[in-house]
Design a protein around this nucleic acid. Sequence first.
RNA 1: GCCGAAGUGGCGGAAUUGGUAGACGCGCUGGACUCAAAAUCCAGUUUGGCUUACCCCAAGUGGGGGUUCGAGUCCCCCCUUCGGCACCA
Length: 860
Amino acid sequence: MKYQFLDIEKKWQQYWESNRTFRTDDDTGKPKLYVLDMYPYPSGAGLHVGHPEGYTATDIICRYKRMNGFNVLHPMGWDAFGLPAERYAMQTNIHPRVTTEENVNTFRRQIKMIGLSYDWDREINTTDPGYYKWTQWIFLKIYDSWFDPRLKKAQPIQTLEEELTSRGSAGLPLEEHFTAEEWKRKSPKERHDFLAQFRLAFVAEIPVNWCEGLGTVLANEEVAEWTEKGYTVERRPMRQWMMRITAYAERLLEDAKELDWPVSTTEQQRNWIGRSEGAEIDFPLKGRADSLRVFTTRADTLFGATYMVLAPEHPLVESLTAEHLRSAIAGYKAQASTKSELERGIEKDKTGVFIGAYAINPATKQEIPLWIADYVLMGYGTGAIMAVPGHDERDAEFAKKFHLPIIQVVDGGPGAAEIFVDDGVSVNSANDEISLNGLKTPEANRTITSWLEKKKLGKATVQYKLRDWLFSRQRYWGEPIPIIYLEDGTMKALPETDLPLLLPDLKKFQPSGTTESPLALATDWINVIDPETGLKGRRETNTMPQWAGSCWYYLRYIDPHNDKEFCSSSKERYWMPVDLYVGGSEHAVLHLMYARFWHKVLFDLGHVSTKEPFTRLRHQGIILGEDSRKMSKSRGNVVNPDDVIAEYGSDSMRLFEMFMGPIEEMKPWSTKGVEGVFRFLNRVWRLFVKEDIGLNPAIVNKQATPDFERLFHQTVKKVGEDIEALRFNTAISQLMIFINEAMKLEELPRKELEQFLLLLAPFAPHIAEELWEATGHKGSLAFEPWPSFDDAKTIEDRVEIVLQVNGKVRGKLEVPQGTNEQEIERLARLDANILRHLEGKKVIRTIVVKNKLVNIVVGG
RNA sequence: GCCGAAGUGGCGGAAUUGGUAGACGCGCUGGACUCAAAAUCCAGUUUGGCUUACCCCAAGUGGGGGUUCGAGUCCCCCCUUCGGCACCA
C-alpha cells in the first residue's frame, strides 16, 4: 500500500472531530498549559503559508504536552471586525456580516485541513453579539474607572466621587482645590464634567490623524501603516474617545522586565513608552504674572538657554503674541496645523516666528525671546522648550538660521564637537546664589534641580513619549460604544443589563459624508429617550477600533459560552496566564501593548488574577517566496497552503514549515524542501508498511541492538528537549537520523519503532495515527504517554579523541568512553602523524580533555 | 542619526559551558535497479594544493585586531543586511 496521505489525513481529521479528541475540560486535576495563537483577521484572500507556521509550532507544543500529562487549552477564533469587510461593503452593498461569515468559513476549512488540535467548541468571533457584549462591558468598566495616582492603580470612579464628597480635593494632586462643601454645591453637570476628566475612557477635543481616504481617524501607531499604503493623513482637531494608557506607562515599562518575550519586542515597547527623567522649569514671563513651563532633561544647561520655543498650538501663544505680529503668527500656525507630525519631521529645514514677547531665564535673569516653531511638539512634555543652542543640535540649527546667541555652558574636553551634546563639565554657569562650574553633568543636573526646587521655580519629573490611545473610529463595522449623549450635555453609560448594544442593520455602507460614521444615518437607532430621566439623547456614532476585541479574547476562550460573566473567575484563575503566545512581530507595540493595558485595568478592578496576560511570547518569522522576496500577488510568488496540501499532504507542509529553520527567522519557501520532507515521510511509511503485505514483516518483537537502542534514547531525549525550546528544525533532523539508521537494519525492533511514532506524532500527526493503528493499536495516540529515555543509555561507549599539535588537528583516536587522561596521552604519542609533527620539536605542555581531545603544545 | 537582531558551503540551516566547523535537508556528481523513465537505494560533495592513494598539507564561519594550548562561540574596532524609532527637548 502506498502512502495515501489525502485519505489518511481526511480519515483522522474526521476521527478527531467526531470523537472531539481535543476538547478541553476545565479539569483541575492535571497541570494546565495555555497555548495561544494570535487569531487571524479572516481576509477574503484566505489563508497563506505564513499562518500555518506559527499555528503548527504551537500545535506541536500542545500535542507534546498532552502526551506529557498536561491539560492543554489551545483555542482558535476570529478577529472579524475591521476595515476590509467594510470597504468591500461600500463597493458592493453586501453586508460586512455576510462577507465576514464567508471568510470565516474559508479560514476554518483551511485551518482544519492542517490538522491542528484546537478545541473548536471554544471558537470565538469578535463580531458575534455574544462576544462584543463583553467587549462593551469591559469598555464600561474602563469608562467607570479612574487612575488613583497614590495607589498607582485603577479604581471605580465612585471611589473618587466618595472622596470628593467627604474630603474635597485635598488628597488629590490637582492645580485647583476645593472643599467637600464646594464639591456638593457644584451642579450635577459640573460634577459630571469634573469626573469625566479622570475617567480612563474619556472624550477629548484633540488634533487627530484624519484619513480622508479611509473616512476615519487613526491612532498614532497606525499612521505609518496606512501612509505606506498610499493614504494621506492630516492633522485636525476632533472630539474623540481616548483611553488613558499613559497612566500605566510606568507599570507597562516595569512589568515588562519579568516577561519572557523577544528582546526586540520589549525594547520596542520601551522605546514607544519613551521614559525620560528631567525637570520642569518655570520661566517668568516679562510683563506678566504667570510663567512658561518647560521640560528638559538637561537642566544643567539652564545658563545656556538663550531663547525659548513654544509649539504653534501652545495655549499661551494667543495671549503672548504682540499685536503687530498677529497676522504673521496666525499664518504660521495655519501652515503648521495642516502638516502631520510625520511631515513636520521630514522637513529638515527649521522654520519659526518670533512672537514679540520675552521670558526671564531664572538662572541668568536675562530676557530671552519667545518663538514658535513646529519642531516643538505640543504633545510632548509641556509643549514648550528652553532652547540651548550650545548643546542641542536642533536648537543650534535654529539659532544659526535666525541669528540667536549661542553660549557654551558645558566643556566637552579636548576634541569635542562644536555643538557638544553629551555629558561634560559645566562652565559659564554661575550667578550670585549658585555655581555649577566644574561639576560633571549628572552632578550639575542634581545641583541646579534642587536649587530650582528650593526657589519654587521647578522640580524633577519624568516624561513619557507614550500618548493616550485614540479609541474611536468613524466606521460601521466595529463594536458600538455604549454611551448616550443627553440633551443636558452629560454623558450616560448604558446599564450593563442593556448590553449588548447591537449594531443596527444598515442597508447602505457609504460614509456619512461628515466626520461621523455611517451609523449617523441610522436615525432610528441613534435617537433615544433616557428611561430614567426622560431626557432626549443621541447614541455615540463612533465605534471601537479593531484592537478592542483582541484586547481580551484570550480571556473569553477560557469560558466562551458564559452569558453571565465575561469569564468565570475560577476558570480564569485556573487557566491564566497564557503560558505561550505565538504571533507576528508586527503586533509588537499595537496589540501587545493595548492588551497589556486592558489586562492591567481588569487586574486593578479585580476581574483577573495576573498582572500580565502573556508570560512567554515568540514571533514566527515571515515566509518569503521561493525567490527570497516578500510574497505578493504582483510578484506571482505566493504559495497557497491548499495547493501544497493537495500535492504533498498537510503532514508534509507542517513538517517542512518546521524544518525550514528557526521559527522566529525570516526564510524562503522551497518546493524542493517540501519534497525532501515528503520523501522522509514516505520512508517512514515504507519502513512500517510493505506494499501488498501490510505491516512490514521485518518489524519483530526483538531486543534492539545496543547501537540502535542508544540512538533511540538519544532521539527521545533530543526531540523532547528541542520541542520544549521550540527548536523544531533540529528535532526533525534527529527524527530523520533515527529513520536513516533504522533503514539499514534487517530486523526492526517493534518497541522502538512504535515509540518513534509517538515522537513523530506532534509534527506529523496524521501519518503517526495511521501507523499507530497499523501496528495494532486502537484509537488515537493523542494521549499516549510520551516515550521516556534513560540518560545512561544515551552515552556512547566509544568516543573519538581529537589529537592536536599546537591546536591543529593531526589525528583521531577511538577509545572507550571514560578512558583516563594518562592513557589517552600515551596513545596520542603513538600516533604516526603526531610523531611526525613532534619530530625535532620540544614539547612545552600537553592539554588532555577527557573524552574530547589531546593538544600537544610544542616550541622551536 | 538612535535602538534591537543577525552575517557559517551552490542553497535552507547544525554546532551544550570555548574543544573534530558544515549535523539534517535541498541541489549537484557518479553508480545500482529498469528495455527505458519515474520512484527507490548506494557512494561522493567547503575551497585550494600535492599525490598511485580520501594520504597529507594549506586556507576557511562578513572584515581587521586581541585574549587563549585551542575562538563560529569571549573582548575591541569596522562593514553589510533585516526590523523598529525618528526634531520626544
